[in-house]
Design a protein around this nucleic acid. Structure first.
Lengths: 212, 212
DNA sequence: TAATATTCTTGATATAGATCAAGATAAAAT
DNA sequence: ATTTTATCTTGATCTATATCAAGAATATTA
């Protein structure tokens, strides 16, 4: 957070405005360096948006017009099957990206829903803005490549785990790999994310706690 | 394939040499355009390598020094669990890439084995060569970003399928999404890739064929 | 062409996890 | 504060898939 003793109201306002991009800048700087000018330019490509808990960013059947960067709060993406059961694909917290890559890329209607699990502050990037951004700040090409690389590695791990591990092992791996999720997410959503039933997760957690 | 009536032996040789990169060039050109000069430059970063069936490209515990582009043949990556069971993570055919992204990126020992399922011709890219390539041909940054994007979308689909579908549904989706795999890969490896036992796959295929 | 190894099939049984059901907490809304 | 709604727990059953076992078909090698 940008803090300090502020003498003038006008300065307060400017800092407040800048804060909307704080997590983004930190995130980008971690992977590639950006000058102050580039940061100024970068923010012009994003549309700030607040989302109340339970509000949708994307609904099944719509085209995913935005990639969303989470400045604050928490999103989830999920599909709904024929039986009406929700299957959570991903969560996204502060500093994470969310969006249906496929729909965003191809312009086809999305199979996913994305909504807010907490009141959230997002930075939205349209396809057009993305293209312009990559053109004006070619460095960002690299940023997105590294981002995708990490995302891919994470999902590969999840896939491997989902294919060869028991429910309990999957749960333990998740707790280890990303302790934030079990802390902030209701248990039945966690179960959905792991591809198991809430009942199974409840029992499995009980077993773990009994054993120690 | 580059074919034609060849008048001089020397030309034959040159064409033969160029053929080693044919699939790569076609693949890169599909995503980003390359001039003849850029193609010439591009190939300097790769090390051609032939792999006999069953030969390893990478063994568990070693650092993944290369990303491999498959010009010809077929690779698989897999882990071996405590019980000695192989879990196939990915296949790669002509025009696909293979490698342990994580180990390649971080320099940590790999958990994967990669070997050839058929006699194969590869183009290897070291981390150093990759960095140089991205510096000399910045366009390639974009190529790799798009590549990762598609790879991510594919794996997301596989993950979703593995979490919410039955064994039969997973099999059907694979046949639909990538008919090449079931055609070219022994059935028990297909089972491993799908995270089911060979027995289950055998029975499930029988059921499908009985129903029609 | 035999011999050896690999892959695939089929049956019998076991089990992890799903499903159905209902009560217990806990959180939100009025 | 009390009703309503969401979430979690526990028990009784069911089922898809794993496991164990052994023979059949197919490929590979000698």
């Amino acid at each position: 957070m940008a803090t300090g003793i502020l003498l003038f109201q006008s300065i307060t306002v400017i800092l407040y405005y800048n804060n909307m991009y704080e997590v983004l800048f930190e995130n980008v700087s971690k992977k590639i360096g950006l000058t102050k000018e580039e940061e100024q330019l970068l923010q012009t490509f994003f549309i700030p948006k607040k989302l109340r808990k339970k509000q949708y960013l994307l609904q099944e059947g719509d085209v995913s017009k935005y990639l969303a960067f989470v400045e604050k709060g928490m999103l989830r993406s999920y599909t709904v099957d024929e039986k009406g059961i929700e299957h959570i694909a991903e969560f996204a917290f502060e500093g994470w990206w969310m969006g249906d890559q496929f729909s965003f890329l191809t312009g086809e209607p999305s199979k996913y829903n994305i909504d807010a699990l907490e009141d959230s502050e997002l930075l939205l990037l349209t396809k057009q803005a993305e293209d312009q951004m990559l053109e004006k700040i070619p460095k960002m090409e690299r940023f997105f490549r590294l981002l995708l690389q990490n995302h891919l590695i994470a999902i590969q791990g999840r896939l491997a785990s989902s294919l060869s591990n028991t429910a309990e092992e999957k749960y333990n791996q998740l707790v280890q790999a990303c302790p934030t999720i079990p802390q902030r997410v209701p248990q039945h959503m966690l179960a959905s994310y792991l591809g198991i039933t809430p009942e199974t997760l409840s029992r499995l957690r009980k077993n773990i706690s009994l054993r120690k």
